[in-house]
């Protein structure tokens, strides 16, 4: 076994230990409270086992799958719009100076406003159906994608542009063969941030105006004081986010394998 594998295995082991430790603390606090200390109403903090039970029940009724699918469908559609718009507008703004001067101030004005502030407006404009949620996600996720794309283009090493043009590259060649690949790492970072943000905001949107989705599930459980189900919603969101991040990272690792090579 190579040293690298041993290292990987031991960091993987450490991670498992950390997760188990977290679950153990949760378990001890909720069990201990319910049976011995009685500091607070045990209903307020179910044990991990109760959450898993709630998960199995929700899965068997099909409710859990429906809610996951509803949220994922909104996230994917909204994020797809944000990704395309963010990259395209970002590329245009990053390469064309006059456009940058026009667009940048507008973006800088809108960016500090929390997207949630616009949610009621979106509901007003697009109704309480899917459209308002998709538009809301698209709006929120647009900013990180756009900003990192522009940054990526702006900071292309000028010596690479010189090298390419001395090899006979036209303006179009420069864009395709230098600017785009050089900006790819930061575009990917933007996409990852944007995707994270999509998840972040969909839950809030589903609290306010939805009849399906994981945010709806949490809010609905609150109305009926089903704490296990509320926690279940949070756990499922966490697991999906974790899984998606691993997926995105491996895509990133493959696309940027030259950069991994640099580190190795």
């Amino acid at each position: 076994m190579s040293a690298e594998w041993r290292k990987r295995l031991s960091t993987g082991g450490m991670r498992c230990v950390a997760i188990l430790l977290f679950l153990a603390i949760w378990f001890v606090v909720s069990m201990g409270n319910a049976h011995w200390w009685k500091f607070f109403n045990p209903v307020l903090l179910p044990t991990p086992i109760e959450v898993v039970k709630a998960g199995i029940a929700a899965w068997q009724s099909g409710e859990l799958q429906d809610n996951i699918l509803a949220s994922m469908a909104r996230v994917l559609q909204g994020f797809a719009i944000a990704a395309i718009a963010g990259v395209v507008v970002g590329l245009a703004v990053g390469t064309w100076r006059p456009l940058e001067r026009l667009v940048e101030p507008m973006i800088e004005l809108l960016r500090p406003i929390p997207p949630l502030a616009f949610l009621p407006m979106m509901v007003l404009w697009f109704g309480i159906g899917e459209m308002s949620k998709i538009a809301f996600i698209a709006y929120a996720a647009f900013f990180p994608v756009f900003t990192t794309t522009v940054e990526g283009i702006k900071y292309v090493d000028p010596v690479l542009l010189r090298a390419a043009s001395s090899l006979g590259a036209s303006r179009a060649d420069l864009f395709r063969h230098v600017v785009l690949p050089a900006a790819t790492p930061s575009i990917i970072t933007g996409l990852r941030l944007g995707f994270g943000l999509s998840f972040f905001v969909i839950v809030a949107a589903e609290f306010i105006a939805a009849d399906s989705g994981l945010g709806y599930m949490i809010n609905d459980a609150r109305t009926f004081f089903m704490v296990s189900q509320m926690l279940l919603g949070a756990v499922v969101i966490g697991l999906i986010g974790f899984g998606v991040n691993i997926l995105l990272r491996s895509v990133e690792g493959w696309l940027l394998r030259w950069r991994v090579a640099t580190r190795g």
Binding site: R162, A163, A164, S166, L167, H177, V178
Partner: peptide, 17 residues
């Protein structure tokens, strides 16, 4: 710049990707 005049830079200027 033109393809008929090749340039070698101190900082190599290789395309890292």
């Amino acid at each position: 710049p033109s393809a008929d005049r090749g340039v070698v830079f101190q900082e190599y200027a290789l395309f890292p990707w």
